[in-house]
């Protein structure tokens, strides 16, 4: 993989797409939430471990939204601004171009995560949960970002339109997040239980709760990690398949 491709993607995500401004807006959201936990009556009654789970979900939600948008426009934008042809005419493979974009997006997630660490620290103050919460959010966020940005980049290749790729990527995120909207009873049995167990978003949310709230040990959580690993592999394979279709064979 070409480091210069990755450097360019990082710079573009920060400068061209106003990445720092996005970080500022997401920090505003986390600030608002944190101030809410100490000032709004209903929120202030929440236990600290519950607060950490809520903040964890918000951080992951922000990261997912930013990264699927960046992924959706990655290749289609190059096509729309007529820079793709020049890129493909360099000795770098289409694969290194696509995966360079994935790593560029992972870097943005890293910035979001680093920005959120002060909030995790102050909200976990005194619980001894700062390290485990941070590590957990870092790992789970990385996994989700790889899955959804990989899928979004693939959509960007197939659909050749930024607008369409964004819409389909958001729909994919919503579909995989369906279990979040189901009631507890619905998730106990039948179809609800099935989709709750296979949804990557659902597995991540459940993991947050198990570790932060119930302080479960790692061995008992293996069944949550297995679907996530499968999704990561599937997303990467899907992206590789999309890369094989990255060409000008349509006569554009």
């Amino acid at each position: 993989m070409n480091q210069f491709l990755i450097n360019k993607e990082i710079k573009e995500n920060i400068f061209a797409t106003k990445g720092i401004l996005w970080l500022f807006v997401s920090s505003l959201m986390l600030s608002g939430l944190s101030l809410g936990f100490i000032s709004i009556k209903e929120l202030s009654l929440m236990a600290q471990n519950e607060i950490l789970v809520t903040v964890g979900k918000v951080i992951l939600g922000i990261a997912l939204l930013i990264t699927i948008i960046l992924g959706s426009v990655s290749i289609s934008n190059e096509r729309e601004q007529a820079t793709l042809e020049s890129l493909l005419l360099t000795p770098n493979s289409a694969s290194s171009i696509a995966f360079g974009k994935l790593i560029g997006i992972l870097f943005i997630w890293l910035l979001v995560f680093v920005t959120s660490i002060p909030y995790i620290y102050v909200l976990s103050y005194g619980t001894g949960l700062f390290l485990s919460t941070s590590v957990l959010i870092g790992i789970l966020g990385s996994v989700l970002v790889i899955i959804f940005s990989g899928i979004s980049i693939a959509y960007s290749i197939f659909l050749k339109s930024s607008k369409n790729a964004i819409i389909v990527s958001i729909l994919t995120l919503l579909i995989t997040s369906i279990p979040i909207f189901l009631s507890t009873t619905m998730k106990k049995a039948g179809f609800g239980k099935l989709i709750d167990s296979v949804s990557p978003v659902s597995n991540v949310m459940n993991l947050l709760k198990e570790v932060i709230v119930k302080r479960a040990d790692f061995i008992s959580l293996i069944h949550y990690f297995i679907p996530l690993v499968i999704y990561v592999v599937a997303a990467i394979l899907f992206l590789k398949f999309a890369v094989s279709k990255l060409n000008f064979e349509g006569g554009e």
Binding site: K8, E12, F15, Q81, A82, T83, E85, S86
Partner: peptide
Amino acid sequence: VLPESHGYYSW
């Protein structure tokens, strides 16, 4: 190669 439709990174 200088393609006919040649774009640039304006930033």
